[in-house]
Structures are given as structure tokens and as C-alpha cells.
Design a protein around this nucleic acid. Structure first.
Lengths: 345, 345
DNA sequence: CTTGAAATTTGGAACGATCTAAATTACGAG
DNA sequence: CTCGTAATTTAGATCGTTCCAAATTTCAAG
């Protein structure tokens, strides 16, 4: 069952040429005569030769492999981010090592080390909570392009693609204020992350701008997951002076919040305004359809991938910080009439 | 910025030993003297040496890389499947090429070919719709272990890990019948897939067993997604003699069905029984909590990964078909009182 | 001191490709 | 024919590691 593997030498021998010629054919060189090219091609197919890319990479010391490490693949946001990257990598002829760090910085360090040993050309990282600049410095110093996505790591000079959480949050809260809400909470997310901070501050700034006080009581942190959303909304409902709307850390939390509201017989989108963050694919079809700050996860993934490819090809290293603009997509969960049509394909 | 890379030879030179010794140290051989091992270790750290695994693999002609190709990473079921695999692969010291075929058989063929060129030791494949045995034959014949997961490919002699859709569907429908439902629909999924067929037949068989007629009208196929669920339930609601409950092709469809019911002011779990399939992670926390046929996607992923590792290590090739037993997890969406406690961790 | 077995270390040939520089072949002009 | 140039082809070194066989060192016993 186990075939003895066939190499360029075998092909060369069978085709009656030298291995150098076969190599030229493999890389589609124009130096080789049409007749021989055809012959070699035929032999390759006949023998079932498979190219050994690592051998080639060894000689050329470059590879068509990139690493992708995400912190939580079970969260749709990151899954879609990954899918976006996958798309552009695939069409650029790259292949990915992909791993899930499960928010564990040690695990993350291990897989990155392993990927490095396997010779990746670049890395896209959605860093686990608690990732420090020092963790990544050796990799970066070795000259391997790194692109951070979704989350930033303070103090590290690398490219990044993040969404404009501050502006997005402000837009969302302004909308809630326009709808007449006066007490607006911020729900979910770990309060020691930069992303949390940014979105929460956007929320606060919009409140202040409208002359509404921003009390810390109205910021309820929790795990950034559906379950976390349920927990956060429970705490919120037990408050004395209940808010009438909330901006959630992300869509998962928002869905959880809706769940929690419903089990307290409060209908989201009718009795209480809920806005999410990320515009996960389910946001559109959920009931009520989720009003959310769209950051187009697949699009971010694609941009991150393109950025990485650019850096790999350029050879040099010009840190570039893309911030994906966030726009508010008004649907039903905030209680507003559907007044903005979506144009997305 | 771009460091000249350091190799075993550099390390050997700096440590005053031969490259062979360094190599022995690297693979933790007991042949080497404690003192020299320490010295070499120190030099390695000092120079920032990184092991070149592809060079090693080239010599040993084996690798610690496996390929994972899934058909739709945006679907939580497959995302969790992937996470399960990732867990065991990571702790076995393997690293994965991971790609999303997006249900496109051509794309799938391309990435598999690419992975093969990069020298993977084995492949776990959740085949795209329309994958034929012929597509995979060359790979299998080359002696690379392949494990199919979630879906099977007829006519291909390889290992597989699938869930017992027929038994699971029967259990679910029996439960609905016990609750007093008489007209029960089967919702969602593409009707040209084996998985659809299996689950739908389980549904039908349970109905027949109870002496209830099984009409084809009650089988409504659609895309196996949340949006598909909404669409399917809409069609169902327009029927003359409306069913009172439905078994859905998967949890995504079930969530969509709940959404669709709600927008028609029908409360799932109260006015209408809904049962899903897969027990995706959100099923537990959704409102109403989804009654579903649990097939434990992460567990399936883990088992598939273990099976693959076993085959890689064994060297030989003994196709093994695991069918993951499916058990009904009764929660709220079917309208039943919560009578079965979950023991899951 | 020998001596021989055990403990360590090592040179050089692989692995399967690419690349450089040089060799060979083809071919139209003189 | 003989050249010169362009078009093809090729031998052999090389990438960074592992492995084999052989060389060297260590060291306790005779």
C-alpha cells in the first residue's frame, strides 16, 4: 500500500533527461524546449509524482506557508475572521497552519514556536488575552512579518487590523439616545482588555456628549460569550434604577442578553433596546434581527491577509495600522423602525 | 532586521562540538554527556537558534503535520469539530494545515493537493458536498491515512467518524410523540446528502413505528443554515394542516426555525415543539434552551483526531468506522418539562 | 602502565529539491 | 564545411538536518 515515493531523479530517469531539466519544467521555466516539457509532464503524471515543497523550500529558504492563530474559534466572529483569511491565502497559493489558542497565552506561545520551526513566512495573530509584547518580540525581531488582528498588543511595533471600537460605540449609543433612551448600560467583555476599554469609552463619551451622566454602575463586565451575556443581563435586571437599553461588548453577548431578557419576560427590541458589536453572520437572521456595529469580520480577515502578503513580498517591514471603520447597522433589536436599508451583498 | 539564520553548524562551532552532537542534544538522546548537553543547550538559547523541522523531515521522511479540511467553518458544528481536533493534535505535538473548502469540491481538491506537497502525515476531512470517491483515491492509494468526519463518501475504504443520525432522529421523534404531537415535520438540510437521508429516515421510521403516517409533504428541505431554517419554517407555516412540532436537520436550522416561529408570534417550546441536531455549544444557553440530538462535535473531532494519530503511528491501514452514538438532550424547545438532568462537564 | 569494554563524539553521506556555471546542441551566415 | 551565437541541457554544490559507522575518550580491572 505504501508507495515508494517518486522524486525528480526518478522522473528525470524515466523521461531520459537530467534532474535539472525536470526542475526547470516544474517551475515553468521558458528555457526548456516545448517537446521535452511535454514529455516530462507526461512522465510526471504517469508516475504520479508529487512535488516535495519542503525540499524546495529548504534550498530556497522561503515558504508559502503562513500561520494563523486565533484566540477562540468557537466564537463566530473569529471563525469568520479565519474564513476571510483562508480565502485570500488560498487564492494567493498559500496554505495555513491554523491553531486555536483558546485564550491561553502559553498554548499560543507553543503553537507559534512550532509554526516557526516548520518555517512559516508570516503570522496573523488574534492574540490571546494576556499576550505581552515580550512574548512576540523574538519572532518579530527574527524578521518574520506579523499582523495582529482584532486585538492589539501594546508596545509592539507590528502591523495590525482592528476595528474602530470607539467610533462604533459612540454611533450606537447616539442612536439609542435619539430613540429616547436615557439610562444605557454597557454589557459584557473582560474589563482588562484594550478592546473592552475602547468600546466602553465610546459608550461613555456618547453619554457625556449628550449631557447624560455616565455612571460606572452601568458597566457590567462578564465573559464575552453568549453565556456571559445572560449573566450580565441578570445582574442588570437586579439593579434598582433599571436601564432601558444596552450596548453589548459583542454580538455573542448581545444574543445572550436577548436570551436573558426573554426569560425575564422582557422582549428585546420592544421593551428594551439591545445593540451588539461585530455583525456576526447570524445577526441578520436572528429574531429580533440584531442592531449591531458592523465590523465585517470576513472583510477584516481578508484585509489582514492581504497586508501580511504585502509584507512578505515586500521583504521589508513597515508597520501599518489599519483601522476598519465600524458602521452602525440598524435592525430590530434596538427598538427602532427599520429605516436604514442594508446594501451588503 | 533580518537575522542571518543560525543552524546546527553554527551552534556546534560556538559550543566547540560537532554538528552530530548538537543533533543528538536536539533529539534528547541519552548518549550525550550531561556537561556537553548543558553547554549546547546554553549556546542554543544564547544564539536564538530555531530548529528547522522541514530539514529534519526531509531527512527522516516523516512529518508531524496533519491536514484538516472542513466544508464550512462558519457553521459552529464544524468550528467545534475543528477545535476538538486542534486540542488533541496540539497535545500530540502535531500541527495542522487547516482549510475551509466552503462546500466547493474543486477548492477542496486544490488544498488537499497543496497539503500533500507540503508533506502531511495524514488528513482529516469533512468532505464538501459532491466529493466523490475518485477525488480521494490517489491520496488514499499513496498510503496517507485519511479519516472522514461528519460525512461519509460512498465507496471509499477509509476510516470515518460519523454520528448515528438514524437512531438519534428516531429518539427525538419518539419523544415528540410521547409529548402528544401527531403531525411532525422534518425541516432543513439539502436532500441530496447522505446525512439528510439518514436523519430524515430516522424521523419517518419513528412515525411509522407509532402508526402515524409519514407524508413527504412534511419533509421540507433548505440550506442547512440559520437562514435556511427561517425559510423552511415559513413554508411550513403556510401549510393547510399545520404540524405542531418539527425535527430539524441541525441546530442552525433549529435556531432559524425558532426565529421564524417567533416572527409569526408562535412561541417555540410553548406553542410548537422544536428539536435540533448536533448540540452546538449555544444550544444550552439559547432561550428557549434547545432540545437537540447531541452528537458532541468537539468529542467527534477529538475521536477523529485520535483515530488518525493511531493510524499514522501504526503505519498500516485498517479502515475503522466509528459511529458516535447520538443521545437526545431534552431541554425546553420541545415543550417538555426539563426532566433529564445533564451530566456533561 | 596496559587493556578492553563502555561511554562519547564525530565525519560524511544521505534526504529532494534549486541554482550556478559550464557543457552541449542547433542553426543560419560566411 | 567552419564559426559564432542562441537555445537547451546538465553536473555538482548546496540548503539544514539525521543517521551510520567509525573514531576517540574514559576508566576500572589486571
Amino acid at each position: 500500500m505504501k508507495q515508494p515515493k517518486v522524486t525528480v531523479v526518478d522522473v528525470a530517469h524515466a523521461a531520459g533527461v537530467s534532474k535539472s531539466t525536470v526542475s526547470l519544467v516544474l517551475q515553468g521555466s521558458s528555457l526548456v524546449n516545448e517537446a521535452t516539457r511535454a514529455k516530462v509532464g507526461a512522465v510526471i503524471r504517469e508516475l504520479g509524482y508529487v512535488y516535495n515543497r519542503s525540499a524546495a523550500n529548504l534550498r530556497q529558504s522561503k515558504s508559502k506557508i503562513v500561520g494563523i492563530v486565533v484566540n477562540d474559534l468557537t466564537n463566530s466572529f473569529f471563525a469568520e475572521l479565519a474564513v476571510g483569511m483562508d480565502m485570500v491565502m488560498q487564492s494567493a497559493g498559500y496554505i495555513q497552519f491554523m491553531a486555536n489558542s483558546a485564550e491561553n497565552a502559553d498554548r499560543q506561545a507553543e503553537v507559534i514556536a512550532s509554526m516557526r520551526e516548520h518555517g512559516m513566512a508570516g503570522l496573523i495573530l488574534s492574540p490571546a488575552r494576556g499576550t505581552s509584547a515580550a512574548d512576540l518580540r523574538p519572532l518579530v525581531d527574527s524578521g518574520i512579518p506579523v499582523v495582529l488582528v482584532a486585538r492589539n498588543v501594546p508596545g509592539l511595533k507590528v502591523s495590525s487590523v482592528v476595528s474602530d471600537g470607539h467610533a462604533g460605540a459612540m454611533a450606537a449609543v447616539r442612536h439609542l439616545i435619539d430613540l429616547g433612551h436615557r439610562r444605557i448600560a454597557f454589557l459584557g467583555g473582560f474589563n482588562d482588555t484594550a478592546v473592552f476599554d475602547e468600546r466602553m469609552r465610546g459608550c461613555r463619551d456618547a453619554l457625556l456628549e449628550a449631557g447624560l451622566g455616565a455612571s460606572d454602575d452601568l458597566v457590567i463586565s462578564s465573559a464575552p460569550s453568549r453565556a456571559g451575556g445572560v449573566a450580565a443581563v441578570e445582574r442588570l435586571l437586579s439593579m434598582a434604577d433599571r436601564p432601558t437599553a444596552a450596548l453589548c461588548f459583542n454580538d455573542a453577548v448581545a444574543f445572550g442578553a436577548c436570551d436573558g431578557l426573554r426569560s425575564a419576560r422582557i422582549e428585546p427590541g420592544v421593551d428594551f433596546g439591545v445593540i451588539g458589536f461585530d455583525d456576526v453572520i447570524e445577526a441578520k437572521t436572528a429574531v429580533p434581527a440584531l442592531t449591531t456595529v458592523s465590523v465585517d469580520p470576513q472583510g477584516m480577515g481578508r484585509r489582514a491577509a492581504q497586508l501580511l502578503l504585502k509584507q512578505i513580498n515586500a521583504g521589508h517591514f513597515e508597520p501599518e495600522a489599519l483601522v476598519a471603520s465600524a458602521r452602525l447597522v440598524v435592525r430590530e433589536s434596538c427598538g427602532a423602525p427599520q429605516r436604514v436599508k442594508e446594501l451588503m451583498a
